[in-house]
Design a protein around this nucleic acid. Structure first.
Lengths: 144, 144
DNA sequence: AAATTTACTTTCAAATTGCAAGTGCAAATA
DNA sequence: TATTTGCACTTGCAATTTGAAAGTAAATTT
């Protein structure tokens, strides 16, 4: 992604410069809910992102401080991608997208339950998931 | 936008197929907060969308039921674009994007106050703005 | 030592974008 | 009434981006 061009001072426009494309938020999703954290994990996702696009999106997200690379505990050949706090803070946005889609589209049953739970108490859901994600950061900080 | 291709059954992916690009949500923003409602209004926005892109985005958003066209009360030459309920329901998503950006970027002072208000009581903010937007729909229904 | 895995890069055709100019109808102006 | 302007687009074309496939280099497994 273009990490350089800023189209205007509008916060929405600036945010879209960071994650306003068809792929970036899917990577965030995989990191948040998919238990995915390596290049190949993202490649394997259902939507079938092209490898060059994945590389460019990871670069963009990293440059924008949404994700960061770190050493993978299992192997030097692997790189572990993880959300920064800035990335974790995208959770409320994703949550609202899921809630919106649940109102207007058919939802796979496995996801449905989670959306229902989020809708019941949004703040609680955000706090819970945020905590889980933060713990992941700490885990990896201490093992790298 | 491609209104046809569905990359997966993931609700997030489907949602991004509808508004996951650099322009669509800016049009929604203009309709929601910008008091803009005609083709030329959108064209004049700060970010400078190209006219062919604007046409294609408006088409896509309409096909996806997010906006709709109607007769402009002032003139036959004008077309009035407005949000559908489905479009109005994007408000929580936009709100969360604004709140996120306020945490990580410099925000123009005029928008800052609105974001602060939204943060104070999200539900209240969504309800208030939703009501205003719904009234706009009714206004135009009765005058067209 | 050879094959495989992992994280990419490169190549190239196809699709999309962005800019400029043009079109056709409506409305305002001379 | 004739002409210009406004509005909502469309068209043409170059430049950029995407997507598919193949390639690379280091690390790991066999």
């Amino acid at each position: 992604m273009n990490t350089n061009k800023k189209r205007s001072d509008c916060p929405l426009s600036c945010s879209l410069d960071v994650f306003g494309d068809k792929w970036s938020l899917l990577i965030i999703r995989d990191l948040m809910f998919g238990n995915k954290c390596t290049y190949n994990d993202f490649l394997k996702s259902e939507e079938g992102i092209a490898t060059n696009i994945l590389a460019s999106r990871l670069k963009g997200l990293e440059e924008n401080g949404v994700i960061e690379k770190s050493a993978h505990p299992d192997s030097k050949a692997k790189i572990l991608y993880r959300l920064t706090q800035k990335g974790i803070d995208l959770l409320p946005i994703l949550m609202e997208v899921y809630i919106w889609s649940e109102k207007y589209y058919e939802i796979p049953t496995d996801i449905k339950a989670t959306i229902k739970e989020a809708k019941k108490d949004k703040d609680k859901f955000v706090k819970q998931v945020t905590e889980t994600l933060k713990n992941k950061i700490i885990e990896n900080k201490s093992s790298s």
